[in-house]
Nucleic acid binder design. Structure first.
Length: 150
DNA sequence: GCCAACGTTGGC
DNA sequence: GCCAACGTTGGC
């Protein structure tokens, strides 16, 4: 049974269209411990909703699948990267990135306000107050029902 | 661009 | 370990 997750990306930075073109990408540059821990928990075959935050249309735009479990995020070792972390070493990396494979782009973006009206989405890190986490788990029930909205 | 809600850092 | 100051996220 695959688990369900939701990851955020800004439409300007890495939209679902780009994932579609790339077919597969390393989900890197996440620099938040809670989010990192969820990235490490992802298993091959898990389903991941792609959410556009800070965008013209804020909401769920598509679906991806975990194609490889998390490895050390290479950006943390690259001095020239904005995501360089001087406290991270190859032997003891701090940040991790799974590989995500494009599955589908939804015909329309399911907006945050629409998601908030769905009773089964009432209790999630996405709809609760705060909503700053960029990687979050959904329950199987939420994931399965959300898929049917498209 | 504004602002609420966090998360992180660093002094003590 | 506490907490103020600061930085970031994300909705609007």
């Amino acid at each position: 049974m695959p688990k369900y997750w939701l990851v955020k990306t800004e439409e300007d930075v890495y939209p679902i269209d780009q994932l579609k073109k790339d077919k597969e990408t390393l989900w890197d540059c996440v620099r938040n411990y809670q989010a990192r821990n969820f990235l490490k928990e992802m298993e091959k075959g898990d389903l991941v909703f792609i959410y556009h935050s800070n965008s013209k249309l804020t909401g769920v735009a598509g679906l991806a699948e975990v194609s490889q479990e998390a490895v050390a995020d290479p950006q943390q070792f690259d001095k020239k990267s904005d995501y360089f972390d001087e406290k991270a070493t190859v032997e003891n990396p701090r940040w991790f990135s799974p590989k995500l494979k494009f599955k589908k782009q939804f015909a329309k973006v399911l907006t945050l306000s629409e998601i908030k009206e769905l009773a089964y989405m009432k209790d999630s890190a996405l709809t609760n107050k705060g909503n700053r986490l960029s990687v979050l788990p959904l329950t199987t029930n939420q994931g399965m029902k959300l898929l049917k909205e498209f």
